[in-house]
Design a protein around this nucleic acid. Structure first.
Lengths: 229, 229
DNA sequence: AATAGATAAATTGTCAACAATATGGCGTTT
DNA sequence: AAACGCCATATTGTTGACAATTTATCTATT
């Protein structure tokens, strides 16, 4: 139940940085709340030095914003920020799918087919309940991203954008997408990659993400109307 | 002649951060060189605190790499890194062009046509000599990026990727592209945007950047062969 | 002579104190 | 009563000192 996950790193700063990142993404530290240096330093049992360093790192990751002489606050994700993030994701993951289509080794492709079979079996067994893809090696999108072989693209998507997305999902009604539909789309994307059809793979991946983005937009407009009553 | 550009910021840390960024991008601090905290602190006349903070920021921007208990080094850009960066640029600027096609106000479009006329006049007057587009408001690509209206995309492209690209250009034979060809492509992109043809604008922008990427690749292979003699 | 180990120097990581700035409360003034 | 300015408090920014780790130097051994 504790939000303190003990990860022994080489330096305190790295340690705190990871713990803070986790705390923010998981929502233990709510959006918009102030990051007090003395308070957190006491809480984590370190001095302000390494803690400040961690905050600067978080700023680089886009999880907090800092104002000189005032301090840091956790970002507040509004719908526009989220749609902007999805737009970038569409462009970058589309490109990742294209790259994967030309470089992905066949054994990795087979392994991904096996993963999709596993997802299929899960849906069959759990009557279409969403499987939680929390970033592990079982996440189809992450596998494609890594298959791109573009180190900078991998870092950006997995360390920055996905943190934001996961953070957002926590406080919104989970995506009301049809998991079987998503699985079909995943399969189509993988087929294109297996056939080394980069153009098609990119197109399908973009359409897939765009669809999720549209759902998000609708959900937001809906909840905005609902909260207005 | 000094590499010290005095920018009075709210905090020393911001100040140092900007100066270091500039020094690295401009090549005053060469690639691969070690960032010594005591040395730089003395050089800039500050204590190690704000200097460390600046280094952490630079790490977030991808300009230096840090190793625990060892220190920071300026990144060394190899051809692969550069091609990876161009690949991301292709995806993101392509998307920016698409977005611009649907949101760019007509007066801004006219202003961009005027800019291209200015470039044309420059080429006519200076017998096709490259105009240096060092990131000012006269850079066509930056104008398109800003017209996308996607804040996150703007920040990533202008603050991170472009810093890397400028850094790389400094120590390589400048792009041997045909400036008239580039100008023609810019015009075609702008035409597509003016006609609100997002698909076409994206396609043309990607082709434009891909072409530059190909030239870069050839130049690299060429110089690799040349240096082997 | 080359390698391995021990010691010394230098650098990074961390801390606690001080300075500068912003925030909140109080009283005064209009 | 509201607004302005002043003062006290708290927070951030910066500094110098100390601890921990790495790097360099020197000696000893094979």
């Amino acid at each position: 139940m504790s939000n303190l996950i003990s990860i022994k790193s080489a330096t305190l700063s790295e340690d705190i940085s990871q713990q803070l990142t986790n705390a923010i993404v998981q929502g233990y530290i709510p959006q918009g709340s102030k990051i007090s240096e003395p308070e957190l330093a006491k809480q984590y049992g370190v001095s302000r030095g390494p803690l400040r360093e961690a905050i600067v790192k978080l700023e680089g990751l886009g999880l907090v914003t800092r104002t000189a002489n005032v301090g840091a606050r956790v970002i507040e994700l509004n719908t526009q920020d989220m749609l902007d993030t999805f737009t970038m994701r569409e462009a970058l993951e589309g490109m990742a799918a294209r790259l994967a289509a030309s470089t992905m080794p066949s054994e990795e492709i087979n392994s991904l087919y096996a993963l999709l079979d596993k997802h299929q079996a899960y849906l069959d067994a759990n009557q279409d309940e969403h499987y939680v893809q929390q970033g592990g090696n079982d996440d189809f999108h992450l596998r494609i991203i890594h298959a791109s072989g573009n180190a900078k693209l991998i870092r950006l998507l997995t360390e920055e954008l996905y943190a934001i997305i996961r953070m957002y999902r926590r406080h919104t009604a989970d995506q009301r997408s049809d998991p079987r539909q998503a699985l079909r789309e995943h399969k189509a994307i993988l087929d294109a990659i297996a056939n080394h059809e980069g153009d098609l793979a990119e197109l399908l991946m973009r359409r897939h993400i765009s669809r999720a983005s549209q759902l998000l937009k609708q959900a937001m407009e809906h909840s905005a109307v609902a909260s207005r009553t």
